[in-house]
Design a binder for these strands. Sequence first.
DNA 1: TTAATTGATACTAATATAGTATCAATTAAA
DNA 2: TTTAATTGATACTATATTAGTATCAATTAA
Lengths: 148, 148
Amino acid sequence: MKVLTKNTDYAIRALLALAAKKGSYMSAKSIATEHDIPYQFLRRLLQQMIRHNLIVSKEGVQGGFMMQKNPDEITVTELIEIFQGKVQVSECMFRKQICGNRARCVLRHEIMRIEQVVQSEFEKVTIGKLLRDLEAANPVHQKATTIS
Amino acid sequence: MKVLTKNTDYAIRALLALAAKKGSYMSAKSIATEHDIPYQFLRRLLQQMIRHNLIVSKEGVQGGFMMQKNPDEITVTELIEIFQGKVQVSECMFRKQICGNRARCVLRHEIMRIEQVVQSEFEKVTIGKLLRDLEAANPVHQKATTIS
DNA sequence: TTAATTGATACTAATATAGTATCAATTAAA
DNA sequence: TTTAATTGATACTATATTAGTATCAATTAA
């Protein structure tokens, strides 16, 4: 059981890259090479994130992608939903019918509870938080704090 | 993101059926028809559960399957592991190498924490518990409590 | 004008999930 | 002792999901 697919994994990494460079554009090419993500695959993910208003883009030479949404407001839950669909227990819940099988419904009850737990845990993890963790773990390039 | 696949879903339902009839054999055919599970599919799941010592079988006429392991000791986590593989965050963890990408590792740290939470939640849910919930919700056939 | 870029979209490959089919071996019961 | 109901084992097909590649038009800074 794989919790995060490549989609989501790559998207998180790309967002971390963009969040670190907030305010300036970064090309898909450089994200791809620096973070070892298949270029064309990444481009598709970036397009999806534009549609969800997480990032913006600029075409042409010197173009690229830039963070739009506040990284502290981008949760892993949101990314999972975009790239893997809403967290759900079993198909049963999609078909919006009361399922005839009582055993399944008992199970469903338990599982909806767990679903809530999972979801709320993933909601605590934002791109902003990950970025801070990342910088704390890797204090190499000290941030040039303004002035320049 | 689907938490339980049909495999696991069907397996749980089959175990609930067997747990309810504990001590006597129940054929794959009757489990399949009573619980609306594709017959041949179910048979394969039952074989897997035999190999994991959750149930036993008897061949021939009047044969079938019977609970072996204590239902209170069969967790949903265990079933997920059998049918969907161990809960893991991303492939990264399979290849037993320290992954070069620091961003990913920071993410991994968060995600291992979440993994623990998920796992422990699913561990609280056992076949025994589900069966009791089920009987509480459906007190139709009162249990003939011994003597006979 | 050109080269670097995104926008859009179509395509392929690999893997996982879901389901079906077949036949041999066993065994209770007629 | 034959038969029918069953499991054991395994091979097969179909569909969906995941992962990755390719192509070409539009835009834009240099």
